[in-house]
């Protein structure tokens, strides 16, 4: 039930196929050869390090280490969110970490308990890839959600103020922006759930099938993970607004980010 091992030599053989790409690029003066090799090189180094590291973690398979690795990924995701949303790290890192860790940890443990029914909930083989998928999705979801929310308020400053004058309550005045942001965050996931499998096999299924699982098993996992992704993304988006919202407005309810 294992995939055919890929030897280093056979991996190198792919490089031969890049040669014509390089030549054509040069002839047509498409200026991407350098960039292409840089990114391939970077990928090789990055993935090698991750591979070695994961191999090591899988070998010890210690619950605390596994969970710490997940937390580490969450901190990285929070940094990356803060950066792409132009947030001050110092102020917003903690709320973002909370917004990631609560739904991701709960859904992941739920998944491992009731879907995959693991004896060891913190088994690296499940926790890390599944946690990674959930997290990756809430990462893009939160970035969309946060950007959408704060940009809309900034662009519609006067409308927001007018609502504030009508309501006198920040929460009520912000609700429409909140709804829109959540919608923007989960819509892509709902759309991809709708068309999944028709255009391309999703990565998880592909991996499982290559790993030797039968398609029916792979499909069950895929369905379960898609639902888990949707739920995680949804709650993570809500929390990301709630938690950052405490620090993003001043005492007069004016946006200060």
């Amino acid at each position: 039930m294992n995939a055919n091992e890929v030897s280093y030599f056979s991996m190198l053989s792919l490089v031969f196929l890049i040669v014509p790409v390089v030549i054509i690029n040069r002839k047509l003066s498409i200026n991407i050869n350098k960039k292409m090799f840089y990114s391939i090189g970077r990928m090789v180094i990055q993935l090698s390090l991750v591979g070695i590291f994961l191999q090591y973690i899988f070998n010890i398979n210690n619950p605390i280490v596994n969970f710490s690795y997940l937390v580490f990924m969450i901190v990285v995701a929070s940094f990356s969110t803060a950066k792409s949303c132009d947030f001050q790290i110092k102020k917003f890192l903690a709320p973002l970490i909370l917004a990631f860790i609560i739904p991701n940890a709960i859904i992941l443990l739920f998944f491992n308990t009731f879907v995959t029914r693991l004896d060891n909930l913190f088994n690296a083989q499940y926790m890390i890839p599944i946690g990674g998928m959930l997290l990756g999705n809430s990462l893009s979801g939160n970035i969309i959600c946060i950007n959408n929310f704060y940009k809309a308020i900034k662009q519609n400053k006067n409308k927001y103020f007018y609502s504030l004058s009508l309501s006198g309550n920040k929460i009520e005045a912000l609700t429409p922006y909140f709804k829109n942001a959540i919608l923007a965050s989960v819509s892509p996931t709902i759309a991809s759930i709708e068309t999944i499998g028709l255009v391309a096999l999703p990565g998880m299924m592909t991996g499982q099938i290559l790993g030797g699982a039968i398609p029916l098993t792979a499909i069950k996992y895929q369905i379960a993970i898609m639902i888990a992704i949707l739920i995680t993304r949804y709650f993570s988006a809500i929390l990301s607004i709630l938690f950052t919202g405490f620090k993003a407005f001043d005492e007069y309810d004016t946006l200060i980010v």
Partner: peptide
Amino acid sequence: LAYFRRNIAYVSQDVDLR
């Protein structure tokens, strides 16, 4: 602040309605 906002009806220059 809430007292101010709740007892003042404001019609802004461009009537900023969603």
